[in-house]
Design a protein around this nucleic acid. Structure first.
Lengths: 202, 202, 202, 202
DNA sequence: GATGAATGAGCCTTCATTCAT
DNA sequence: AATGAATGAAGGCTCATTCAT
């Protein structure tokens, strides 16, 4: 029986330190990716000894999980905030524009980390599950709202999910500005137009 | 870069051996991801000595690049084949259905590798560039075809690019069947309908 | 050696705490061996902070030494008790039987610890010395008793020591029941018979 | 699937190198014990890189197992050689004297290692099993020989085993010369006399 | 005296790359 | 060209011990 040595920090200073380690992970994983960041670097960046990391986390991957958690809260918060404003199907178009803008913003400030985390989706079941859950939550939530406002149920869930997909996909490209020959403003309009048409009552 | 130590194999046997190494990379990266495959395994799988790998490749990443190249040829070939059949804007709808089907097929047989490769996009500029070029080529090509058939230039490039994005995004999800609550057949119809409407002349 | 940093506990509560740490060492070393028990576990088991251990002990080894001391007292007490009953060379045979039984008992309840401690004999001079002293004491004591009862001095010390050795060796095997093909009851008789014959006056 | 990377060396130089590593383990474990010897030291002593150790062994414990194997062969060889000379129950006494002498010799030259290995008996099942098997083999072998020469079966196995035990126990003490007040020559006579009497036909 | 968070040297092991043959 | 043994830096993690509170 090995003593479970991971402390759940109660004291303020400890919490602060745990946060600092997560932030170090956040920053370094963003800059260099998970595989290219070692625990010594994390410790140094967090101004902490290597040993204490294992006082707060089970292993390196555990840090990653916490980083993901934070990242997701950061990402979803403004989206959920927007959802709260949907009290009427009539000005849905405005909301759609806002959501796309916001997701682009979120990507702009978290692009690198998003990439790193997403890339771990493939080899790590935990990370993968977290991402799926994130999407699930948003989809289900939005569906509930729209249904309550009287929208038709016909393929609604799929429409929402699809919309989220293309917003995400577009934002990603937009931020990286990957393709020089693409006019992203034009493309953004295509995206919003399509989503708007999807939710138009005929 | 000491590129001059890498031989460009001229003899048939050598070429065959280089191919085998790339194929080993292909298979193993697919199964276990790039980071979890080591050069010894690649050598063993390719029935080749560990040392000779560095006779054909600069380093491990170099194998990856070759794998990507092969992967891209594999992926794009059937898509380009379909493009060749587009001689008329009237049955574009059928072509769109076919393209979506084909891309799904491509994903089905290469999903793991795609993930691994894509995940390297973040940390490796070369890999990233290769992916961008792939998309560029397809977009430009298709644009040229459609223009030559008389389609309006208005945001055409962006429409194409956007369409490719959502096909790719959808196929990816479809293959992984990630979200249990989504009816992917319904979603596929949404995808194709939207693309079709994008290219409809009004 | 910075022995002066270690407090000799005077207050009752302190003494009690030191005892608890030793007992923790006792129990945990028994269960998992010295090398597989870390100080954090000892502290936890003793319901004590990790730091305070170094208030009572110089280092981890120091705990071990105390454990050994306790262990030895535990082990020797019943043997010495038996010695007190030897007031006559005539019923030596009964005593011998009793001693063997008792040593087996002692081994049964302390086998694991004995092993661990004994194993440290090799790398640690202190531990080694303690074990030697233990045997010395018993041998010398018993010799004195037997001499006072009129037994011949001829190789007496060696006979005693040898007897102790084989009792110890046998008990050890008996407890572990190591060799499946050995009839240990038979073997016990061999042991006692030999010892009895050793001390028979001819 | 991780490639099994432990090579079974075929070439002379490789075999020689593997031997050198085992010998390094042998010497260092003897001097400092298993726990106080690290792989870097072994590598250095063997004039080998740290990495290659894992080309020949699965892990550190694997080296230990090889050391034990060698040790046991070394220990048992002369004993078995003596057994071959037993062709007659009449000069058993001489053989017994020789065996005791030889076991003492073996202990003299391998005492430290014996201790270290034996100490691992407690925490490591493999090591333990190896020691038990060693004793089993010798006991069974000798029993077969004596039975074939016409010795009575009555508790024979136990007698043999017991004899081995006391020889081992005595040799051990003798080599370490642990107890200053003991005349080990006297004690040796006690040992041999007892064994001789055990195997005397009455 | 007491706490338990913090330290950091040290350990075992892996693996991309090199090199003697 | 080819082999595969060899290298050694680097990585994740542990733990006896210290120290701020």
């Amino acid at each position: 029986m090995k003593a479970n040595t991971v402390r759940e920090p109660k004291q303020e200073r400890s919490i602060e330190k745990k946060k600092r380690i997560i932030q170090a992970g956040y920053d370094l994983f963003s800059q260099k990716g998970y595989h290219n960041t070692n625990t010594a670097e994390i410790a140094k960046y967090a101004k902490v000894s290597t040993g204490i990391i294992y006082g707060y986390f089970n292993d390196k991957k555990d840090i990653l999980k916490c980083v993901i958690e934070i990242y997701m809260r950061k990402i979803t918060a403004p989206v959920y905030a927007l959802f709260d404003k949907i009290d009427n199907l009539d000005h849905l178009d405005l909301i759609i524009d806002e959501i796309v803008d916001i997701v682009i913003q979120m990507h702009k400030s978290n692009a690198n980390l998003h990439e790193t985390l997403h890339s771990l989706t493939h080899t790590d079941a935990d990370v993968n599950a977290a991402f799926i859950r994130l999407e699930d939550d948003i989809t289900i939530n939005l569906e509930r709202i729209l249904l309550s406002l009287g929208m038709s149920d016909d393929g609604l869930r799929e429409k929402i999910h699809f919309s989220l997909n293309i917003i995400e996909s577009f934002s990603h490209e937009y931020v990286y500005d990957k393709h020089t020959y693409i006019d992203y403003k034009k493309m953004q309009k295509i995206v919003t137009d399509i989503i708007k048409s999807l939710f138009k009552k005929h």
